[in-house]
Every structure is written in structure tokens, then in C-alpha cells.
Amino acid sequence: MSTLDTVREIVAEHADLPGRDDDPLQVESFVLVVVAEALEDRFGIRVAAREMRPENFGTIARIAAYVEGKRA
């Protein structure tokens, strides 16, 4: 499963998926925390407070790119 597929799966567990991967993620702020912690568990990464920004968590595609960057 690709990183993008896994991110979609994680987000879908907690919120409605947007139509496209680069559409803005319309979720309650707390959902982002739950998603971030799920990403940490799944990918073995640590999300820092300063990284919790729209550039990294604004869309499904950005989350996937962020995770790829953390794992690189």
C-alpha cells in the first residue's frame, strides 16, 4: 500500500475524505491530532508541534508528502 493510500485510510477512519487528494481537508482541529498520532504509529515517525501547519496537514497529498519527507 502506498503512503498516499495509507494516509487516505487513516483520515477516512476519523473524517469524511475530500473529493480529491489536493482538496482542503475540512476536519475539526482535534481530528488532526488523532491523525498525526495514527501516522506516528503507522510510520514510526514523530510529529513535532512546529510541523503541525497547513503546509503539512492541509490536504491528503500534503500529509503524504510530509510523511515521505520524514521517512527519507
Binding site: 482535534f30 488532526l32 491530532v33 498525526a36 513535532a48 508541534a49 512546529r50 503541525m52 501547519r53
Partner: peptide
């Protein structure tokens, strides 16, 4: 910025 505050509190 709730999510950032959440993570910052733990950090």
C-alpha cells in the same frame, strides 16, 4: 491552533 498547542504541551 489546538493541534499545535496539544503537541507543544507534550514537547
Amino acid at each position: 491552533e489546538g493541534p499545535q498547542v496539544y503537541l507543544a504541551a507534550v514537547e
